[in-house]
Structures are given as C-alpha cells and as structure tokens.
Write a protein that binds this DNA or RNA. Structure first.
Length: 178
DNA sequence: GCCAACGTTGGC
DNA sequence: GCCAACGTTGGC
C-alpha cells in the first residue's frame, strides 16, 4: 500500500472541484517520472494528498483516492488540446493516467510553511527546495502525520487479506516483469 | 553522448 | 515579477 501526493493548481482544478465532480481523470501530466507512478505503481484504493500549488498559500488541502487502473490520457490524441502529443497514437499511447476520487477536505489547509516547520516532515519531497515533481510518493509515516495534522482519519481502510481479490480472474494492466 | 540553451514549475 | 531548480531539446 503506497501513499502519494498529487499537485494541482487550485485555479485550474481545486479540491473543491474534485468534491463536486467526485471523480476526475488526472489529465495533462507530461513528465515521465510522474507518468510512471500512475502507470506502473499506483493501485486502486491507494490514498493521495491533494496539494494546491501556485496558490497563496500553497499546501495540502485534503485527500483523494486512486479510483481505477491506468488508462491512456485522452488529451494526447486531441489536436485542439494543449496536451496534444503528435508522437502519440491510440495504438501507441505515450501518456497514461489514473482517475482520482474525492475523499476529504481538511478543515483548514496545511500550508507548505507548516509542513516545513514540522521536524517529522522535513524529509518530505514536497518540502525540498526545487521539488517540481507533480506526482510524488509519500512515506506512510508522513502520510499518517499529515492526516493527523489535518484532523482526518481513514474510516474506510481497504479490504485486507480476509477478502483477497481474485486477481487471476482479470488480466492485470500492470505488467510484472521488466 | 555531451552540454548549452531554452522552457517550465512553483515558491517567494 | 523574480529567479532557482529542474527537465527537455538539439547542435555538434
């Protein structure tokens, strides 16, 4: 079970927007490292901190959840889109994404300044200077601490080994051996 | 394959 | 608006 942080500029798409639409395909990521996290590493049910970037102030506004398996970002095929990629085709997509669904909005946003002032969060990637990666893995301890600071706890933890998923019934989109 | 130039991100 | 950090591009 991995944890994540996803950045969005609230003037473009905020956590309030996610709360309204409930589920959103995370289009427009054009960084290979960020894409690979969505393509290969995220699993449905995993939780992500929703970070407002380019905001005054920037910070973590709430929590979202990976809502499904990866699929091609449709905007790469749309010539009118600012995310159009002429090197991509439906037969050979270059950009993959997952959908995120709304989980919660923190009662008050945890600002970046607050995160940086907490010694237990000093190692977080988002606290590092020059960290631009728009999708980042988050250590479980950091995730737990932030949810504690945000006044939220997960009351719907994912199913455990008591009800194993019949993974052999459906083909996995994740590949497996490289 | 190096690396300078350029573009973007995003805090401040 | 500034600019540091980082990623990508393209000449060679």
């Amino acid at each position: 079970m991995s944890h994540w942080l996803i950045k969005s500029e609230p003037e473009v798409f905020s956590i309030a927007d996610l709360a309204r639409v409930r589920r959103e395909p995370w289009t427009g990521v054009r960084n290979y490292q960020a894409r690979n996290f969505m393509w290969k590493d995220m699993r449905p049910g995993e939780l992500a901190l929703f970070y407002h970037s380019n905001a005054k102030p920037p910070g973590i506004a709430g929590v979202a959840r990976v809502a499904g398996p990866p699929h091609p970002d449709p905007t790469q095929f749309e010539p009118a889109s600012e995310y159009f990629d002429p090197k991509a085709s439906p037969a050979a997509p270059r950009w993959w994404l997952v959908d995120f669904e709304y989980v919660t909005t923190f009662e008050s946003m945890l600002t970046l300044a607050e995160l940086k002032s907490d010694p237990s969060l000093a190692a977080m990637l988002v606290c590092q200077r020059g960290s631009r990666l728009s999708i980042q893995p988050v250590a479980a301890s950091h995730f737990t601490r932030i949810c504690q600071l945000g006044g939220w706890q997960d009351n719907n933890p994912p199913a455990t080994a008591a009800s194993p998923a019949p993974s052999h019934f459906t083909p996995s989109p994740y590949g497996g051996s490289h």
